[in-house]
Design a protein around this nucleic acid. Structure first.
Lengths: 262, 262
DNA sequence: ACATGTGAAAGGGTTCACAGCC
DNA sequence: GGCTGTGAACCCTTTCACATGT
């Protein structure tokens, strides 16, 4: 999930298409769309794989789950594959989405071209700030949270995007779910709890950075002449055992503001 | 990606900590930080797992890779674990990052509190638009792309965030890498090619939505009384080539009810 | 009594390598 | 000759279940 990871616990996997394959289909689709625009008629697994950033064996295996639409000795028909993958992903139909929380990030999402370009349509922007109500963002007037339920049912929205601060996310999520939404893309740095049957994917900027930092740190430690950088941490106490159990005692700590506003 | 998936091909895995575990450490850390703020002294694997959105067996296994910092019959010391995980992730040191591309998204990132709160410091904002130069975003003046190399070397930056349009991403990436950056968080919808030794993680909004759509479509097809929605797709041409060779081809196609026979 | 820590089993995902077909 | 399609081997991840320790 970001990322994306936390998904339904692998129960009843669609038509047998593995989750990992589903996650790569959009990648293939993007590469194929680019080829299509350049009027390239066919493409080999090797070429397409390299354009999508995967290896060719994986790509062929992935396509085999869709039914194997290629021609041996030739390759894949670009237009045909675009259609098949689009259909498999459900992009041949129109998906209205609502974005809740029109701060910096919400506005960025509303303006993001990638949404509109692939069957997704921003049906409404919703924010709790009355001062924003009526103001257009990306050409769409922001509506107040009070209207949330009505907007969703009137427009038949089934996908919601949460871009609120962390503190508001669960509450917004609950209302979205109660209003009938069954898929949520969450940008707030919180674990959302949802009932069975609702899909949540999360995108977490801070987590991605932390994973990078982990590997970066490792690189620095491995390099021959790499100085270990300034380390700001206190040694911290042992895991504490029997008596007087009191580890770090945040005396020299002085760091970690910890609150994560969206 | 999420999520990030595309990472170094599992070569030489750090100190033996599995990649999947590394990706969850930030989740644990966030949950632990919240507990720490509430002055909770210890926590069980069950409680912490539920706060982080995973199951307890997984969490215990994950911690076992770090060295098993718990106490049987008791649980984990919150403060101590916060420190151990922070150290493992490299968050006890300061990581300067640069953000390239200060559009809607770049501005949102610059304002994102989660960056600053965990050892990451926005060292510079960079944009190709001369009109932006000098203007402050999130209190930091935007600098021109010409300065990119100098900024990176002067500040010892090793992590870069790309929030440019897709067309500019590879070029920016190349310059970042040439300037010495070895970790990149990419928000542009493109596959970046980088030399060996450079880590790339990508966050792709459109891909996450497409994955949701896939599952959403499946739900609609499974539900008893679910109307199949408006379908906007043309039948698309056959895979070309010769005469025979015809995949399933459901009789009177033309419409595609979006229902996949399970 | 209770909760961690961990071998072992189970489940997915990736890669290999070659059979099959154009 | 060239490229797809796929069983089989391999590897990583998750889950189970219980031994271990306090």
């Amino acid at each position: 999930m970001a990322t994306g990871r936390n998904h339904r616990p692998a129960t009843s996997r669609s038509r047998g298409i593995p989750e990992a394959t589903v996650a790569r289909l959009p990648l293939y689709l993007r590469a194929l769309t680019a080829l299509s625009e350049r009027s390239v008629p066919t493409v080999s697994s090797e070429e397409l794989a390299s354009a999508a950033g995967v290896n060719s064996a994986k790509l062929r295996k992935d396509f085999s789950y869709l039914g194997s639409y290629g021609t041996r000795g030739v390759g894949y028909d670009v237009e045909y594959l675009v259609y098949q993958i689009s259909r498999e992903l459900g992009l041949t139909q129109d998906w209205p989405v609502v974005i809740v929380g029109i701060g910096n990030l919400g506005a960025a999402l509303a303006n993001y071209g990638g949404f509109a370009s692939r069957g997704f349509r921003v049906a409404a922007l919703i924010d709790a700030d009355p001062g924003l109500s009526g103001k257009p963002v990306a050409g769409i007037p922001v509506q107040h949270t009070d209207e949330l339920e009505k907007i969703i049912s009137d427009n038949g929205v089934s996908i919601g995007v949460i871009a609120t601060p962390a503190g508001a996310a669960q509450q917004v999520c609950d209302r979205l779910v109660a209003a009938g939404i069954t898929s949520i893309l969450n940008f707030a740095p919180t674990v959302l709890s949802v009932p069975e049957g609702v899909d949540v994917r999360k995108v977490d900027l801070s987590i991605e950075l932390q994973i990078l930092a982990f590997h970066e740190q490792r690189k620095a430690g491995e390099e021959p002449g790499a100085p270990p950088e300034t380390d700001t941490a206190p040694p911290a106490a042992p895991p504490a055992v029997s008596v007087a159990k009191r580890p770090p005692e945040s005396g020299t700590d002085g760091d970690l503001p910890a609150v994560m506003p969206a």
